[in-house]
Computed example of a mutant assay.
Amino acid sequence: MNARTLTPLDHLLAGFERALETVSGAPEAVRPSPAAALDEVDLDETERRHVAGLMRINHTGEVCAQALYDGQSLLARDEATRAYLRHSAAEETDHLAWCAERLKELDSRPSLLNPLWYAGSYAIGALAAAISDAVSLGFVVETERQVEAHLGEHLERLPAQDERSKAILEQMKTDEAGHALAARQRGGIDLPFPIPGLMRLGSMVMKTAAYRV
C-alpha cells in the first residue's frame, strides 16, 4: 500500500499536536542529558533560585525554538529545507527536555507564559517562511547567533560549583552554533535592519519575564 501524501492540513494538525506537547512539558530527549554523569551539588536558596531562573529562561528559549522551526517547516518551499528544519527541531527537543529535567531537580517549573511565547514564535517562523526559504534560514542564523551569545552569558552567571547546569548549557551552545552554520550554508541571508535589533529586544523581554514568571 502506498503511503498517503500528507496535506497542508495534516502538517497543521501535526504542528498543533507538537505545540501541545511542547508547552505541556511532554517532549522526551533522544540523547542523554550532558549532566547525567555529574553529581548534584549543594546550592543555597539564593543560588538555587538564580539557577532556576536561568534554566527557566533557557527552557522558554527552547519552546520558542520549537515554535519557530514548526512555523518555518509548515511553509518551507524546498523539501530539503523542511528536512533540515525538522532535524534541528529534534535537537532542540533534546534541549527542551534537558532544561525541564534540570528545573525539576531545582524544585522549580517552566515559565507560565510559554503558550504566549510559542504562539508568537510560531507566527514569526511562518511569516519568515512565507517570504522565502532564504529569509527563513536567515532567521535561524540570527536566532541561533543570539541564543549562543546569551548561553555564554548564562555560563558566566552560574555558580561555579553547578557543573550539571554548566554541562547542559555548553552542549546547547555547541548545538546552536551548528544550527546557525548549517542554515548559513543552506542559503540563509543576513536579515536587514532593524530586524536583528527587534529580535534582541524581544529576547530581552522574554528573558526578563521568564526569569521570574
Rank of each mutant, 00 (worst) to 15 (best):
R77W: 11
A128R: 07
R48T: 08
E153D: 14
Q161S: 15
Y69S: 02
Y118M: 08
A83F: 03
L137D: 09
A90W: 00
V141A: 08
E91I: 09
H87G: 07
G125E: 10
L106M: 11
R56C: 08
A83H: 12
A130I: 00
T143R: 10
A129T: 04
A134K: 14
G120H: 08
L85C: 01
H154Y: 08
N114L: 06
P115Y: 03
A128L: 06
T46G: 12
L151Q: 05
S73Q: 15
E156K: 14
C99Q: 03
A52K: 10
E62C: 01
A67E: 01
R48V: 02
E170V: 15
S111L: 01
E156S: 07
T174C: 02
L113I: 13
G61P: 05
V141G: 01
E92W: 10
D78A: 09
E47L: 05
L54M: 13
D44C: 12
Q66T: 00
D133P: 04
I124T: 13
F139Q: 00
D78V: 01
D70H: 00
H95Q: 13
T143Q: 07
Y122K: 08
R49C: 02
C99N: 05
D133G: 07
A97L: 03
E47N: 09
D44F: 10
A126K: 11
I124V: 15
L151W: 00
E163K: 12
D162Q: 13
E105A: 15
E144S: 10
G53R: 04
N58G: 04
A129P: 01
E47I: 07
S73N: 04
L155Q: 03
E79V: 11
E45M: 07
A167V: 13
I124A: 13
I57H: 00
L103M: 12
I57C: 04
L112A: 15
E153M: 04
A89C: 02
H95W: 07
A76F: 09
H59I: 02
T174G: 00
